[in-house]
Design a protein around this nucleic acid. Sequence first.
RNA 1: GGCCCUAUCGUCUAAUGGCUAGGACACAUGCCUCUCACGCAUGAAAUCGGGGUUCGACUCCCCGUAGGGUCACCA
Length: 438
Amino acid sequence: MNKEIRTRIAPSPTGRMHIGTVRAALFNYLYAKQKQGQMVVRIEDTDAARDREEYVPDLINQFRDLGFEFEGPYRQSERGEIYKEHLQIMLENGTAYEAEDSEHVEGAKVIRLKNPNKVVTFNDMVRGEISIDSTDFGDFVLARSIDNALYHFAVVVDDADMNISHVIRGEDHITSTPRQILIYEALGKEIPVFGHMPMMLGEDGKKLSKRHGAVSVAEFLEQGYLKEAILNYLAFQGWNPGGEREIYSVEELVDVFDMLRVKPSPAQFNYDKLDDINRHYMLELSEDEYKSKTEVFLSESLRDKFGEHPDLASRFVESVLRDRVDKFSDIQSMEEAGEMNYLFEAPLIDQELMSFKEESFDDAKRLLTQVVKKLSALDDWKPESIKETLWDWSGEVGRGSVLHPMRTVLTGRAQSPDPFTVAYVLGKDETIKRLTLV
RNA sequence: GGCCCUAUCGUCUAAUGGCUAGGACACAUGCCUCUCACGCAUGAAAUCGGGGUUCGACUCCCCGUAGGGUCACCA
């Protein structure tokens, strides 16, 4: 019979959840889920000096919000007794011994492993056979004292106790795997299968850090990336299903995921690619979802205006924002760049800006008078019908001579959406009013 | 430095001994257009180097080189 597949993700509460942790969790989750197994979450908080209690809820809530189902969370800080029992086993069977502590504090003893000094070999799911001589790390310390287990020991005891069948983690743990195998052997526990996924680097190939931009999931979320996009992107860092399709939901990934296709080489983070995938998911958002997420990124005053003019806001979101936004924080940048100023306030007339090429202000004025006349007769106020009304005629008199002044009068900007869209967004009355003002 | 891992377009990657080395992002050009964005089309762009093995190597082996990881009484 097949043993149940159990994986685990074991973060330390030393900061907000790192995007790399999310990726590790995702791979563990996909693997377990696909095999009808279970992923357990364990908080590794045995380092009182660096751990901060305040990060624990963030870690757990983040996993939940991202949609991972898991067992736990367990906390190492609550498992001292179990470590103690196992330490005793090793002390008794001679695989560990007490030794003088390095600070030579009176009466203090640390517990060290009695290293068999041999070549340890294991079969890594992504890299194949790896052999390392354990002599390299000597009789390393397992615990500061019988009541104070250290990382490597706690991890092994926990993984064994929680029946973890597959340890999927970052490549930075490769060289510590033999140490842990030694502990499994000393304890007489079954050794799990290891799989070391490649590191995720920053865009310059260096370790992903603050200076590359966002590094915690929270930051990505705050920038307006959708969690579906983040997860989809992360799945493709170091893995892919082999085809040319790149958009997969987590549910779909569960079906196609394959640990054996995980690449051994490190991947560099690429914000442009993330943006592209995010845009894809944003396009799938309903009008209401899109609009309410948009409002979060608006200034208070503009948000109020949106509230006062819900129809105009909806038209703007659907016909302007949809095409121009990769992530919701782009909306913030757009507002700051003044790209939304024209929505609720007519821009000042700028004769120079209004003039198309070498044409005069009076030419423009004369043409706009005709635009007003044509549009006034239009009842079906849609971008397509507005365009239809002006298209052929403007072609005859010079398209730029008509559209350029029209657009600049409406928006006050050298660059903006096309005049048909803008007119539609502003509404018939406001459009006519602005065009007449000239 | 010792040990370990890795190496295909700028980036993410496909091709698990057999095609003109494929796709996506980014980039460039063109089309759409008064501008910007979207969209569409086209293009440029890679097997780190050297030896083997083989009828045949991106693919397997060895040596270099480069990058990364790890060497705690941190996790």
